[in-house]
Amino acid sequence: HFTSQQLQELEATFQRNRYPDMSTREEIAVWTNLTEARVRVWFKNRRAKWR
């Protein structure tokens, strides 16, 4: 589960860029205190939901 702060950060990034690269995902991981893998999976799932 994600905190509302984490989701806000993830959503804001998603609005700007639906396909963040590795370095962007790592930055998000640092800001949100999540692993890069969790961030990558979140984006994958979010893109699926967005379609």
Rank of each mutant, 00 (worst) to 15 (best):
E36G: 03
R40P: 00
R18I: 05
E11I: 05
V39A: 02
T35E: 06
W31C: 07
F14C: 02
W50Q: 10
D21A: 06
N45Y: 13
R51I: 10
T32I: 14
E26L: 14
A29D: 03
R46S: 02
E27F: 11
R38A: 15
M22Y: 14
F43G: 00
R25T: 04
Y19A: 04
T24E: 14
K49Y: 09
A48E: 11
P20E: 02
L34Q: 07
W50P: 06
F43R: 00
E26M: 14
W50G: 08
S23H: 13
E27W: 11
R18Q: 13
T35D: 09
F43C: 01
A37W: 14
A12R: 13
P20Q: 02
V41R: 14
R51V: 08
N17T: 08
V39Q: 00
T3V: 03
R25Y: 08
F2R: 03
T13A: 15
Q15E: 09
A37I: 13
E26N: 11
R46P: 01
R51D: 08
S4L: 13
A29L: 02
V30A: 14
R16Q: 10
A48V: 09
K44A: 10
A37L: 14
R38V: 15
N17R: 03
R51L: 12
Q6K: 04
R51G: 08
E27S: 10
W42Q: 03
S4A: 13
L7W: 11
E27A: 14
E11K: 03
R18V: 05
S4N: 11
W42S: 00
V30F: 13
M22T: 08
E11A: 00
F43P: 00
L7Y: 07
F43H: 00
R51K: 11
W42Y: 03
R25C: 04
M22H: 11
H1C: 13
E26T: 12
V30L: 14
K49V: 12
T32K: 01
K44E: 14
L10K: 01
S4R: 14
Y19Q: 05
V30Y: 13
W42E: 01
R40V: 04
R38H: 11
L10S: 00
W31K: 15
N17P: 00
N45T: 09
T35C: 06
Q5I: 11
T24G: 05
D21I: 04
T24M: 13
Y19S: 05
L34S: 13
Y19N: 07
W31D: 09
Q5H: 12
A29E: 01
T13F: 15
R38C: 15
A48P: 01
L34Y: 01
M22A: 10
L10F: 02
Q5E: 12
R40M: 07
T32R: 01
R38M: 15
R51E: 10
Q6T: 06
R47N: 06
L34P: 00
E36I: 05
L10G: 00
V41Y: 12
E27M: 14
V30D: 10
Q6P: 01
A12N: 11
T24Y: 07
T32V: 11
I28G: 00
Q15C: 09
A48K: 14
Q6G: 02
V41Q: 14
N33W: 05
I28R: 00
F2L: 13
H1E: 12
R38N: 09
F43I: 01
A37K: 12
E11T: 01
Q15Y: 07
R47F: 05
A37F: 13
D21C: 08
I28Q: 01
T3M: 03
M22P: 06
H1L: 11
K44M: 11
K44W: 09
H1S: 12
T13P: 01
R46Q: 06
L7D: 05
W42P: 00
S4Q: 13
S23Y: 10
R51F: 12
W50A: 13
A48S: 08
A37V: 12
E26S: 10
Q15A: 11
T24Q: 14
W50M: 11
E11M: 04
P20H: 04
R25Q: 03
T32E: 02
R18Y: 06
H1A: 12
T3A: 04
V39H: 02
V39M: 01
T3I: 04
M22R: 15
R47Y: 04
E36Y: 01
T35Q: 04
Q8W: 12
T35S: 10
L34A: 07
V39Y: 02
K49T: 09
T24N: 05
E26A: 11
